[in-house]
Write a protein that binds this DNA or RNA. Structure first.
Length: 207
DNA sequence: TGCCAGGCCCTCTTTAGGGCCTT
């Protein structure tokens, strides 16, 4: 891990893609991200990218991203080079991070770039900290926590922004419910891996 | 020909199956 990795800066990111699996030939079509410094958004990144083939009608309807929009976009390599620069030195957060990590790894592998941060998953943390939530879908959690939003979902920057707000809600929960002052990224990673049954006892020891 | 994601998590579990999440 890089010595320049920032302790207080994370990038919350979200991909829109042509499908669920890069192993099955799916590609990224949009990346959106916000950079958080001590919980405050200090930078944003949003780019459509042309995967080189037409997206299905399902994806066009699901995301609102059309083939006409993608025809005018830069190719994936160009966008991902810029995004690799954007995330340099930062840890990463995503909702269901294993999905976004697979696409990030696949797209950066194509252009032979790498990143120095590690991922934390807001879905896994949410399942442990707000076990009463009826669902841990991003949209459902936005409603559950009454998170401000512009009504846009399944677009990369909009989803990254509400995920960043959710991340902050989860950090605030650690402070308010467990008296954990300044919970950090590595604690969130530990929470994500902890058995649900022992999370309460673990957090009470942290406070 | 027919199949086709992958990881987490629960339970009627561990020699398994299925729902939840992401697009």
């Amino acid at each position: 891990m890089s010595l320049t990795l920032s302790a207080n800066t994370v990038v919350v990111l979200d991909f829109e893609t042509t499908g669920l699996s890069p192993n099955q030939g799916d590609r990224a079509i949009e990346i959106g991200a916000v950079k958080l410094e001590n919980g405050v958004i200090v930078d944003r990144f949003q780019k459509l990218m042309n995967p080189g083939f037409r997206v299905s009608s399902f994806i066009a309807n699901y995301t609102g991203i059309t083939n006409a929009m993608l025809a005018e976009a830069d190719d994936c390599a160009t966008v991902m080079h810029n995004f690799a620069d954007f995330i340099q030195g930062c840890n990463l957060v995503a909702h269901n991070a294993s999905f976004d990590q697979r696409f990030l790894d696949a797209e950066l592998d194509v252009i032979q770039r790498d990143y120095d941060g590690t991922f934390a998953c807001s879905l896994l943390v949410s399942r442990r900290l707000t076990q009463d939530a009826p669902s841990h879908k991003l949209g459902e959690l936005v409603a559950y926590h009454q998170i401000d939003n512009d009504g846009v979902f399944h677009r990369a920057l909009a989803d990254a922004e509400v995920t960043a707000s959710l991340w902050q809600v989860l950090l605030d929960t650690l402070q308010s419910d467990y008296s954990i002052t300044n919970p950090d990224f590595s604690l969130m990673q530990k929470i994500a891996k902890m058995p649900k049954g022992s999370i309460d006892q673990f957090l009470k020891k942290q406070g």
